[in-house]
């Protein structure tokens, strides 16, 4: 049984909450989506003798900082789910808000990186490397934006009268999505910045 304590949501024949089962199937499809993009990146990198080339510089300190922020946000998300299991509304709202803020900071740093590249006239059309960089990080950033939005929506629902009886499982579902976004970055960061 999950750590979430909401009780009024349907459980199928497998003994798994419908929402959680659906979310995991969705995440499995997302894995294939990102594996397609990452495989393309890897084969292009392997087939290029001087990848990423002299202009392919990325800031490792900024990338490292963003990774630290995203890992920290995963912990605050996990703490939100733990707060649901103890029915601690104050802690739940605090940790959800922290997750939203950290996700927003991640996007802010990413936008600083993007604007620096644009300032140096580096665009997706500049080279194959930069095309890959903007597509991979852009698609990931879109996922972060969705995650921040969903978490903000879930946070707003914590004030609803029926939250603890029928809506608290949403914290765990949005948490699964958020952790997935973290896992994607765990692979994107070293592939783009370190290797």
């Amino acid at each position: 049984m999950s750590q979430a304590a909401s009780v009024e949501h349907s459980v199928g024949q497998l003994g798994i909450e419908d929402g959680k089962l659906g979310m995991w199937v969705f995440l499995a499809s997302e894995v294939m989506f990102f594996v397609g993009l990452l495989s393309t990146y890897i084969v292009l990198k392997a087939g290029h003798p001087a990848w990423p080339g002299p202009q392919g510089h990325l800031s490792v300190p900024l990338g490292t900082l963003n990774t630290l922020i995203l890992i920290l946000s995963s912990m605050t998300m996990a703490l939100s789910v733990a707060a649901v299991s103890t029915r601690n509304a104050g802690a739940l709202r605090l940790y959800l808000l922290a997750t939203i803020v950290l996700g927003s900071v991640f996007l802010g740093i990413k936008s600083i990186e993007y604007s620096a590249k644009f300032h140096h006239e580096i665009f997706p059309s500049t080279s194959v490397f930069w095309s890959c960089y903007f597509v991979l990080t852009g698609v990931h950033a879109l996922h972060v934006i969705v995650g921040v939005g969903v978490n903000a929506w879930v946070l707003s629902k914590t004030w609803d009268g029926n939250f603890w009886t029928s809506k608290s499982h949403r914290v765990e579902l949005s948490g699964l999505y958020w952790h997935f976004v973290d896992v994607v970055w765990i692979f994107l960061f070293p592939l783009l910045y370190l290797l």
């Binding site: 049984m1 999950s2 798994i16 089962l21 594996v35 948490g175 997935f180």
Partner: peptide, 18 residues
């Protein structure tokens, strides 16, 4: 963080399937 260690093994199978 995603609780696969504590949840049904069916979810682990779905996670590993791709």
């Amino acid at each position: 963080f995603m609780h696969l260690k504590f949840d049904s093994k069916v979810l682990t199978a779905i996670a590993v399937a791709p």
